[in-house]
Each structure stands twice: as C-alpha cells, then as structure tokens.
Design a protein around this nucleic acid. Structure first.
Length: 708
RNA sequence: GCGGUGGUAGUUCAGUUGGUUAGAAUACCGCCCUGUCACGGCGGGGGUCGCGAGUUCGAGUCUCGUCCACCGCGCCA
C-alpha cells in the first residue's frame, strides 16, 4: 500500500509541511471530497497524473519483498521500508534504486512541482544563512517588529524557527515598500525576496540570521492584527492576561521551546517503551470512579438519568485488567483528573506516563522506570546515571522528615531523643519517654550560627510554627563553648555525646524539634529545605534521583484507628500475616527527583484472597468492595498473572526538565488556581434545556460572576 | 474552608499625611525621518483607580464586604 506519507518518506528532497494540505486542495480541485482517505486521494491524484501503473508496480515489489523478508527473518519482519533496508542490505539496495528511479522522477515531474507552486514558503526564517545568498526565497510568518525610517523599512519576520530581517527599499521595489508602510506588529506576511549579505558594520550579532537580510520584492499582508493585549516576551506581564490570550502567549520562543521539549520527551518515552515491547493502549475517560482517594470529576449520563461517569484519577484498574488479558506490557501517556485544590505543581487535569507489566519483580519494574527516565533525559539533553540510589521509607522519614528527600544537599536530621531521657525539663523528658510515638530531632547547620542572625532565627521559628511546632529550640556553637537555653536541662554527659554525635564545630547552629513523630518529622523536614534554600545550598543544575522503597502498607488515619492504604489498596503487602498492621510493608516504590515525587508504583495484588484481606483491614465491606471494584475482583478470579507497574507525573517531569517554577508553564492551556480556564471561561453555566435532558436541576445559583 | 501578597491607561508601574485637572514608560493614532535592529523626533487620543458599601467638607489613598489572580496550609492514598 503506497500512501502519501510513505511516498514522501522516499522523497530525496525535503517536502514542505504544506504538502499534505496542498494535496487536499488539489484533491478538491479534481472533485475528490476532502473527507476521503489519504489512500483515496493518492489514487485520485495518480489517476490524474496517469501514474497508476507505477503505483501497481511498487505495490507488487513491496509485497514480494515483504514475503521474502518474512521468510528470511521471521521475527524481524516489518512493513516499514526503512527497516527493510537495514535488515536486508541487498534487498534494500535494489529497493532504493527502483524507488529513486521511479518515485523521484514522478515527484519531480508532477507532484513536487505542484507542491512548489502551491507552497507558501521555501524556507523557515532562521534556516536561511550565508549559503542562501543570491537565492530567491519565499517566507511566511509574523511581524516581530518593524522599523519605518520614512524611506527604508525594516521588518523582523518571525516563525517558529526565529527571526530574519526583511528590507523594503522604495528604490528596489516601490510597490512592496508601499505595502510595508501599512505593516504593524504581529501582522501575517507572505514574502518573496532575495537573500543578500548585510553591509559592513550592519550585522546584528544577536540574531542567528544577523549577517544576512532579505530584500523584499513581493509582499502580501495575509492577515492583520489588532494591537497586542500585552507585550510578547515581557517577563513582568501578569499571568492572568497571558492565560486569557494563551494562544498569543504561546507565540513566544521560550514557550515554543518548552513544548518542543515536551514533545521530544513524550516521543522518547514512546520509543523506549516500544523498544521494550510495551503496547500503548488507551483506557476510558468516561469511566467509573476509581478509588484513588481524591475527589472525582463527574459527568452526568443522559441515557441513564441520575447516574454519572467519573473521569479517571488514573488508569490504575484498567491497566491491571490488561495484565489479566495477557497484554503483558502496557503503557499509556494518560490524562488523569482530580478535583482537588490547585498548587504551583498541581493541576486538576494532568498527564502521567503509566506503565504496567506482568510476571515481574519490583526490580524489573524499577529497571524499566530507570531506562525510561534515562531515555527521556537523554532526549532532553541531560545525562543520567542509572541505577538510581535507594533509600527505605523509614530511613527517609527519619533522616529527611518526609518520603521525598531532596538529596542535592546534606543537612540530615539526627535522632537525639535518648539524650533528653533524664533531662531536667519536664516537657522534653515527657516526650523522651515515648520513643515510638515521639521524636526529638536535631538539625545541625554547619556555619549556621555565623550565617543566621537573631532575626532570621525568629523567621525560621515562625516558619516551623506554621507546621505545628510549638517553638524552635537551638544551640549555637561559639568559640567559648555551646550557647542556648536548653543546655541547662542537659547533663554534661548528654552534651558531650551530642557534641560528638553531631560533630559540632565552632560556627554551627543546631535546631531541635520535639513532639509527636508525625509533626516533628514534618516541620523538621521542611526546616531542612528552608535552611538549604536560605543558605543557597541547592545546586539547581543537579538532578538527584532516588528510589524510596519498602513503604508501609497502611497508616493510621489522623485521630482515628482507621487504617488507610499509604499507596493504594491494590498494592502487594510483603507480610500480610504480621499482626501489627502498621508494621506491614508493601512492594511499593516512589521515584523522587530533587525533593519532588515524580511518580511511584508497586507490585499489585493478583490473588483474590489477599485482596480481600487488604480490603477487610481497610474496613471496606464485601458489599462496598463489590460495588466499587467488583470488576477487578472478578478479574482476579480468572488467572490474573503477577504484575506491577508505575506512573510518572509527566507535567512535573517537564517542569523540572525545563526549569519552570509552575506546572502551568508546561501545560499548553492550563487552569488557574480556582480551576477555571481564563481563555474559554470554563466551567460555565449550561442551558436549562441541556440540564433537563440530563435530569439535573441546580439547587443554588453558582457564585455570581459580578467581576465581569 | 483558612492565611499571605497583589488589583491604578491595552501592558508594566509611580502616585507623599486623605486635598487642584491621577502621572511615566511602552503600546495605539497622526506627522517627519533611507541602514535600523528596544530605530529616532514632534504632536495626539486613551482612566468608573477590580466591584459595592461606609467614614469624611473631600477617598486611588482610611474601614468593611465582595470578586479576580498568585503563593502557601488544609485537601491531593
């Protein structure tokens, strides 16, 4: 089958991106409806060109090679002509000779000539260089800026590649100059002109095309533009106005480059996963609420009044079902939806690279994740060392105060609870009595006493107070010994132990956090990061990956005796028979990059009895389990293979790779913090008729839109 | 739901202790200008100071409410 795409692959010359469009136009001209397939159009064009004969000949040749190759190398068979050439050099040689001879001729004689006539440009702006001097080129793009000197007019023309200077001199071409005098910023131009060197001293070293310019001899104002609502490229412009006119915002070079990078990353992900035998499968967007813990976005059903679909929070259950189907290796670059409040790194709809595989161990899955990340980073121009470091959940919590440690800097937390056992301060002594539920943590900041003024220490205290600390005790290491209010409670022996345990040096400061484990770890972990930020200890150019492994299966819900799954309830427990449910660990693992949770995964439960026991520990009744995910439980009855996988937050990944402060910068059309779209004004009220059809009545009017 | 920051010309901002006609830059419009590249020069138009109350002789400025945007907390297993 020879379609347009494969025909253009064989072109010996680059084909204009407009080729496809032109063929559509052409097809119209010869009265082929535009909705016809490429194949139909190809044939229509070929009829017109009288090249049906060649088409048939190619088809036969291709088919015979396919058959021959299949026999010659069974598993390496492919329909891709390019791969054939690699696989069987001889066949490839003959093949390409034939193709060159016939196809190229055909293109030159008919199709390509036609495209050249119709194409709106011969080059992209910034692709032109000194080698093109003397050539007549055709360009199309936007007016980045114009400089009208009364006589001569300069225009910086922009397309996605960059800028080039156009010159309209009345002496060269009066007509073009007259048209040029009407030009304003962001007009769309189609230009024909001659490339020439700029004169001595007229070069602009800041421009890639600064040594040349294009003398315009034909100028078409293809479209005009209103004055811009904001200045492109002005870094101070408010984000709301940029979001309202996002399509203009995206015209900026930096924006284009961000999304170009994002595209490269996505393609790299697809390629590497394809290489490892993973199948890309799309799972439903209209689905049943999957129990991920976040609020669902609901979609009312017209056919079933009063019933709702939920948008997926992740494809979790579907990918597990695909494993039961024996697909063995699945991936998807999947859109996920969670109706929770937004943050700089959180959007209500976001993208995950979602992966699942069968008959695998945790090690296998982690290896795939590492290969995937390495491929993505390589595609984005960064070297990454694999395998990544690992840390257990427990160690991470104790040393860094959270399960997503930023390892670009040190500042580990130290346990000092034992030193306060017999101290004279009642509060500390009381806390130190219960080592299992409480913590007393020390954060030594080398040189911190020199760096932190009293005012800064106060600020740090205010900082931790926001996260539940009652205060922030500290010890300063001065030339003449330790200083600080809590010293008087400690025995000399305890102080000596602390000195050696923390390796205290003159100029250091040590902060202490004491209280219940959860609170102390949380605020001391945050303090650690805050201190590093203030001391500028974070190398922004480093990528520190780490696996956090051996997660507990459950944690107690705050203030209750209810267990909840730390990861999710389909995660395989390591030791389900353990009596203390909090001590049950799971085959779950998170991948952390620079203190940000990039993703995570687990080995899943593939046996019904274990799944039922987990539900029962979680306090989920049989009926509830059946109602919510009966389909998964059913599937586990039919020979579910052992399986596991992971998901990566693609937006966050791109945020880190492009060094953006906000996830909005790597999403083409993001929502604001109140989950609205300033461009489309979504969400918005709908017609009464629409609601009626859905069987829905609004109880209260939504909040007034008085602002408009 | 809560805390913080902000909202003045299309845009980015200034606006003193509450006091005359709310300014600048840029963009826009007009005129002039043949080597600029953030071109330049001269002139012009453009404001419900987010919205609504209140205090006051008088509010961009003070108070309260409200809306919007951003940052964070809660929430997001």
């Amino acid at each position: 089958m020879v379609g347009i795409a494969s025909a253009s692959q064989r072109e010996q010359r680059p084909v204009s991106p407009y080729a496809h469009q032109n063929i559509t136009l052409f097809a119209k001209r010869i009265e082929i409806a535009p909705q016809h397939t490429d194949h139909a159009r190809t044939h229509a064009i070929d009829d017109y060109l009288g090249t049906m004969f060649f088409e048939c000949a190619f088809h036969c040749i291709e088919k015979s090679f396919e058959l021959w190759c299949r026999r010659a190398k069974n598993d390496a068979y492919t329909t891709n002509g390019q791969s054939l050439i690699h696989l069987i050099p001889l066949a490839g040689m003959i093949y390409s000779i034939i193709l060159t001879k016939f196809c190229y001729n055909r293109a030159t004689n008919h199709q390509f000539t036609f495209i050249t006539e119709m194409a709106l440009r011969t080059h992209y702006c910034a692709d032109i260089n000194e080698n093109n001097v003397g050539e007549h080129v055709e360009l199309a793009g936007w007016v980045n800026s114009y400089r009208d000197h009364g006589g001569i007019i300069f225009i910086d023309l922009r397309d996605r590649t960059g800028l080039i200077q156009l010159v309209c001199d009345p002496a060269d071409n009066e007509k073009a100059h007259k048209i040029a005098s009407q030009i304003r910023d962001e007009y769309v131009l189609i230009v024909k002109g001659l490339v020439r060197m700029r004169g001595e001293g007229l070069e602009n070293p800041r421009l890639k095309t600064g040594k040349i310019e294009v003398v315009v001899d034909e100028l078409i104002i293809e479209n005009r533009s209103e004055p811009m609502p904001f200045t492109l490229g002005d870094p101070n412009v408010g984000e709301d106005i940029r979001l309202k006119y996002r399509y203009l915002d995206l015209r900026q070079k930096e924006m284009f480059e961000t999304f170009q990078l994002r595209s490269k990353a996505a393609i790299a992900a697809r390629n590497i996963l394809d290489k490892h035998g993973f199948l890309e499968v799309e799972t439903p967007i209209l689905t049943k609420s999957t129990p991920e813990g976040a609020r669902d976005y609901l979609v009312p059903s017209r056919v079933h009044n009063g019933e709702f679909y939920a948008l997926p929070q992740s494809p979790q259950l579907f990918k597990q079902l695909l494993m039961v189907s024996g697909f063995d290796r699945y991936f998807q670059i999947a859109r996920c939806f969670r109706d929770e409040d937004l943050r700089a790194d959180r959007q209500p709809e976001f993208t995950q690279i979602d992966v699942e595989m069968s008959f695998c161990t945790q090690e296998d899955v982690m290896k795939v994740a590492e290969e995937l990340l390495k491929a993505i980073f390589t595609a984005c121009g960064h070297e990454v060392q694999i395998p990544f470091n690992r840390i257990t959940y427990h160690e991470s919590m104790e040393k860094y105060g959270n399960d997503r440690p930023d390892l670009r800097f040190g500042l580990e937390l130290s346990d000092v609870i034992d030193l306060f056992e017999n101290c004279d301060n009642q509060i500390f002594a009381e806390i130190a009595k219960y080592k299992k539920i409480n913590r007393i943590k020390a954060l030594k900041v080398p040189g911190g006493d020199t760096a932190f003024s009293r005012k800064i220490i106060k600020e740090l205290e205010g900082f931790v107070t926001r996260f539940g600390a009652k205060g922030l005790a500290y010890i300063q290491v001065k030339e003449d010994g330790l200083k600080g209010p809590i010293l008087k409670f400690l025995s000399d022996e305890a102080i000596e132990t602390m000195k050696s345990r923390l390796d205290l040096q003159v100029g250091d400061i040590v902060f202490f956090g004491a209280g219940d484990k959860k609170t102390v770890l949380d605020y001391m972990g945050r303090l650690r990061t805050e201190v590093a930020r203030r001391l500028d200890l974070i190398d922004e150019n480093r990528f520190e990956f780490v696996w956090v492994v051996d997660f507990p299966m459950f944690e107690l819900e705050e203030g209750t005796l209810h267990l909840k799954a730390l990861h999710h309830p389909f995660t395989m427990p390591k030791n389900i028979d353990e009596e203390d449910a909090e001590a049950i660990e799971s085959d779950a693992y998170d991948i952390v990059l620079n203190g940000i949770e990039l993703g995570g995964g687990s080995i899943r439960i593939h046996k019904l009895d274990i799944q039922e026991r987990v539900f029962s520990l979680l306090g989920i009744s049989d009926e509830e389990a059946k109602e919510k995910f009966g389909f998964l439980l059913d599937a586990l009855k039919f020979g579910a293979p052992p399986h596991g996988g992971f998901a990566l937050g693609f937006d966050r990944l791109m945020m880190l790779l492009s060094k953006k402060e906000s996830i909005r910068d790597v999403i083409a059309f993001p929502k604001t913090q109140s989950a609205t779209c300033l461009l489309t004004h979504a969400p918005s009220p709908v017609d009464e008729a629409q609601l009626k059809e859905l069987g829905i009545r609004i109880r209260k009017r939504p909040k007034s839109d008085a602002s408009e």
